[in-house]
């Protein structure tokens, strides 16, 4: 069984989703120790977090044993709070405090221990059986961003993994050719990492969420740091 299933404890009074819970139980049994976290959102979805070493086998089991043959997508996520905040330089936007870069990383549903996660969604589209789907997640340690490629199982994962490699710098072992997909080959950095800066925003501060441009005859509201055009 899973070591940390937060489903039962978290939502005692919420509506239950028997179908998904039954599926979760079946999958947890089939995958055994590989499952390290899970989450059921009633009527919305099922999340399973597996260990990195069991990633390929988990996908294989879900595909072959449960018949989830439709490959929806694969991507990554960087859970670090952005050191740049949301580039809210104007005083009007400071209602929301900037995230503390030293705070521990909060991860999403089904938990997580590391900064980077890979997730993919598979679905079963057979009829008349109901449309079922699952999101699989895996943690990647910061010092070793690599995971086994699932291209042998789903040929369609090829481009998704290339995109993930380009955007997050996650290496997929056994991928037939990790080349740039979107960006020119001389591009440096991994844009979807949270610490990748948007230079245009750094050099030209965002003037504010609400329009605070003073009228020509009016004095500027506040102490003048609201207008962003002069930086």
């Amino acid at each position: 069984m899973a070591e940390a299933t937060d489903t039962a404890a978290e939502e005692a009074q919420a509506p239950r989703d028997e179908e998904r819970e039954a599926l979760l139980a079946e999958m947890t049994e089939a995958l055994g120790d590989a499952v390290v976290g899970s989450h059921v959102a009633p009527g919305r979805g099922l999340w399973l977090r597996v260990t990195r070493d069991a990633w390929y086998d988990a996908v294989e089991t879900v595909k072959l044993r449960f018949g989830f043959t439709f490959f929806d997508f694969l991507s990554g996520i960087d859970w670090m709070p952005s050191p740049w905040g949301r580039y809210e330089d104007a005083a009007v936007d400071t209602g929301i405090p900037r995230p503390d870069p030293d705070a521990p990383i909060e991860t999403g549903v089904a938990g997580g221990d590391t900064r980077f996660q890979v997730f993919c969604r598979l679905a079963d589209v057979r009829r008349p059986a109901p449309h079922r789907n699952v999101v699989l997640k895996a943690d990647l340690p910061d010092d070793d961003l690599r995971i086994r490629s699932i291209v042998p199982l789903f040929a369609g994962a090829n481009w998704h993994e290339r995109e993930c490699w380009e955007m997050f710098g996650i290496t997929f072992d056994g991928h037939p050719g990790l080349r740039h997909l979107y960006l020119p080959s001389e591009f440096e950095g991994h844009p979807l990492r949270k610490d990748f800066p948007l230079l245009a925003r750094l050099v030209k501060p965002w003037p504010g969420i609400v329009d605070v441009e003073p009228m020509p005859d009016e004095a500027a509201p506040g102490d003048g740091d609201t207008a962003g055009g002069d930086a």
Partner: peptide, 25 residues
């Protein structure tokens, strides 16, 4: 088609009867 994640008319033209408007809930 399924392994490549084709969807919409491309998938239905391959005989898979799946439309999220009906099956997506």
């Amino acid at each position: 088609a399924l392994a490549y994640g084709l969807s919409g008319a491309n998938l239905r033209a391959s005989g898979v009867d799946w439309d999220l408007r009906r099956d997506g809930g």
